[in-house]
Write a protein that binds this DNA or RNA. Structure first.
Lengths: 348, 348
DNA sequence: CTGTTAGCGCGTTCAA
DNA sequence: TTGAACGCGCTAACAG
């Protein structure tokens, strides 16, 4: 009665639709339809089938179904890193929506490496997923891999680190305004020489934040010192070295605006090593989603993005693509607001 | 020359093995073998096939392959939450190994809910993944769903929040010792009344940490006050309420040992609200993987687990199961060491 | 070294 | 309302 087959080098009993059919003296197609709750099947048969399925602990093979339906019930999330509360929160939002829709979530980490991003994009042309959500790597300055992916018909939603030159939906935050507010905050704390720290010269969010920074300086008649606009890599040790040089050099700033949490943390580490007091001697503001109280971080003022909501909105938009055939060319550009959370710096 | 088919409600050109065969005047199976670099195929043919595949931008359909081979090239990671540096780091390690092995990683979040965990476990019987790595939810006090999954032949590796009553590999840390060390650390800081805060009364790691806590108290002749051994839920507001009551009640402790980072943070938040000074009036130690400098958290002493390494080891063990048919009954119990990182509290 | 053939498990025509 | 038969795209057994 029970069929055995070697599966992955081990014995596994496989209950399939055929076995249900045999046990119930019904045809395979009837079973299939009953399980899919088709209108063509009588209620009596349906319940008989369901009961037998339950009894034999039947689980439909997702790959057979995907092959037949050309639908994987799976989405991909491609992000630079996961050890970053922003992305962790975004995944939380994405996963929430995916669970609602009975979808599965594949995770791909580029580690800020464009080659990996290209590799994932190329690979995902094969139908493994029904759509992807992506936040670009800091190295990404060319979008051919994404254009090709899109041309294959794979729906793409960008979030946070978006690509504006591709016509697709995106969810992001008011980076220009936040950059402006962050800089103005430091100015209002008395800073005269404010450094801007960033990971990338390519990302749209980086450039918008920087523009905000520059506008704020201009507004307050502070001249822009190009030497204080700095780019870093994924290498923390190197980054700290650079920051250390900046903080001991002739252009030493009295305020730092870090566009990424990890650069703020690197700055903190350097300050501790150099015995620079924060915020007395140096004020720091940073984009960050660390969920810690001000007691834990008495001197960290942050710009906090609605990360969970961003993930959720991005997923919802992706499902809008997936659920309605005529939505493929209806793109949404959603811009959410970030929040400046003042802490120690203001009290200083 | 190019075949079209409706895919997911949209037009998609599908280049399959058959088309390559036609274009090259070869049989389908030859193509298949050439692409899989089979020894039976001549180098000339192989390169011809590869070039044509490249030219037509051929991507093998993973679901067809999985259906045929009974192998999904996919693993599942089931964890309680992702907004927690421990799990984020663990995923990082897992993903590193998976990328090496050309595997795909599905993420499932239980949100500390046993019903979700059961749902995932039952669902994953269907062959969607070749194996799973799991860290139990704090509610999990029954393992039937996992036993059934294992009986279906799905390899399982437990990490951190393991299940000792199921014969399978696991990776965890020296929780008893860490609990002991954490408590002794507080005692050496002068604490006489130490509270133990935990999420669960079921998890093995919780119990081991608590045993360590109790042993340390005993060793130093401090009697155990059951009212200071507290369990919390996933509801932060409720947790802070409970902590607040504890810190204002007659049994007010002078030290807190939080077995989970979020409980330490809740404690910090409460202290801030109640104007309790840390570490002067209350010392706190916590399991935590926050990657922040001591400047950022001047008063947080932590027990840090080698989270990345745990993820990596867990994945490696899973692949040991997957790669060798005779490894299914060879289980490894790996116990890594955690590190106590003293901060403000010691200086206090 | 290559081709022919037969499924993997399911969904969906078409026919009854 | 149900059944028979075909094929999704690929791999593997068996021939040659």
């Amino acid at each position: 009665m029970i069929k055995f087959c070697t599966f992955n080098h081990r014995l596994l009993m496989s209950v399939d639709i055929k076995m249900l059919a045999k046990n119930l003296n019904l045809s395979i197609s009837t079973i299939s339809r009953a399980l899919r709750d088709s209108y063509e099947i009588s209620d009596v048969t349906k319940t008989r089938v369901r009961e037998m399925a339950e009894k034999l602990n039947y689980h439909p093979n997702p790959y057979a179904s995907s092959l037949r339906k050309h639908k994987s019930m799976t989405i991909a999330v491609v992000i630079p890193e996961i050890t970053n509360n922003f992305f962790a929160l975004a995944i939380n939002g994405i996963e929430y929506v995916a669970q609602e829709k009975n979808y599965h979530v594949l995770i791909y980490l580029t580690h800020e490496n464009i080659k990996k991003e290209i590799g994932f994009a190329n690979h995902l042309q094969n139908g493994r997923v029904d759509g992807i959500m992506i936040s670009l790597s800091s190295e990404t300055n060319n979008y051919d891999h994404l254009i090709e992916l899109k041309s294959k018909g794979v729906p793409i939603v960008f979030f946070d680190r978006i690509c504006e030159s591709i016509e697709s939906s995106y969810i992001t935050t008011d980076d220009y305004e936040s950059g402006f507010a962050a800089t103005e905050h430091l100015i209002s704390c008395g800073c005269k020489k404010i450094a801007y720290l960033d990971l990338s010269r390519y990302l749209s969010i980086s450039n918008k934040r920087m523009l905000g920074y520059m506008s704020a300086l201009e507004k307050h008649h502070i001249s822009i010192d190009e030497r204080l606009v700095m780019r870093f890599t994924n290498n923390n040790a190197e980054n700290e070295e650079l920051i250390s040089k900046m903080l001991t050099g002739p252009n030493r700033p009295d305020g730092i605006f870090a566009s990424v949490e990890k650069l703020a943390i690197a700055s903190y580490n350097v300050c501790e090593r150099l015995k620079i007091k924060i915020p007395e001697q140096l004020k720091i503001i940073s984009f960050s989603n660390l969920e810690i109280s001000s007691l834990l971080s008495p001197s960290l003022t942050t710009i906090t993005q609605p990360a969970y909501e961003i993930g959720k909105q991005a997923a919802l938009q992706l499902f809008r693509y997936l659920e309605k055939k005529n939505m493929m060319n209806v793109h949404e550009k959603i811009i959410l607001k970030s929040t400046l959370i003042p802490r120690g710096s203001t009290r200083a």
